[in-house]
Amino acid sequence: TFYNFIMGFQNDNTPFGILAEHVSEDKAFPRLEERHQVIRAYVMSNYTDHQLIETTNRAISLYMANL
């Protein structure tokens, strides 16, 4: 899942690491979701930090390219 992918960046001092920290603390994050459209919609609806949203979009693109 995307959640498992992004958790691989925990403790990294990178934008993906920052995203992983936010996702791990977000109890409502769709952890079992595999459809990138649902993940993107969730982030757009629940996150207000523009940098975090952009990082999510980049992470989703990388995740999709590696499926």
Rank of each mutant, 00 (worst) to 15 (best):
T1K: 05
T1N: 09
T1I: 05
T1P: 08
F2T: 01
F2L: 05
F2R: 01
F2K: 01
Y3V: 02
Y3L: 02
N4P: 01
N4L: 11
F5Q: 00
I6D: 00
G8D: 07
G8C: 11
G8P: 03
Q10F: 13
N11E: 06
N11M: 09
N11R: 08
D12L: 12
N13Q: 10
N13H: 09
T14D: 05
T14L: 03
P15C: 11
F16V: 02
F16S: 01
F16N: 01
F16I: 04
I18Q: 12
I18E: 09
I18N: 08
I18V: 12
I18T: 10
I18F: 10
L19W: 02
L19T: 00
A20P: 02
A20R: 06
A20W: 08
E21A: 15
E21N: 15
H22S: 06
H22A: 11
V23K: 03
S24V: 07
S24H: 13
S24A: 13
E25V: 11
D26H: 05
D26T: 06
K27G: 09
A28N: 15
A28P: 03
A28Q: 12
F29C: 03
F29L: 02
F29E: 03
P30F: 08
P30N: 02
R31M: 07
R31I: 07
E33I: 04
E33C: 06
E33Q: 04
E33W: 03
E34C: 14
R35Q: 09
R35S: 13
H36E: 12
H36W: 15
H36P: 15
Q37F: 11
Q37P: 05
V38A: 11
V38D: 05
I39C: 02
I39H: 01
R40K: 11
A41Q: 12
Y42K: 00
V43T: 04
S45A: 15
S45M: 13
S45N: 13
S45K: 12
N46C: 07
Y47V: 04
T48P: 07
T48L: 11
T48A: 10
D49Y: 13
H50S: 13
H50P: 15
H50M: 13
Q51K: 13
Q51Y: 12
L52A: 03
I53W: 10
I53H: 06
I53S: 04
E54V: 09
E54H: 09
E54Q: 08
T55M: 07
T55N: 04
T56D: 01
T56W: 14
N57M: 15
N57K: 11
R58S: 08
R58F: 10
R58A: 11
A59I: 07
I60L: 15
S61Q: 14
S61W: 11
L62A: 09
L62N: 04
L62M: 12
L62V: 10
L62I: 10
Y63K: 01
Y63D: 00
Y63M: 07
Y63G: 00
Y63L: 07
Y63I: 06
M64R: 09
M64H: 11
M64N: 07
A65E: 12
A65Y: 10
A65W: 11
N66A: 15
N66Y: 15
N66F: 15
N66P: 06
L67R: 09
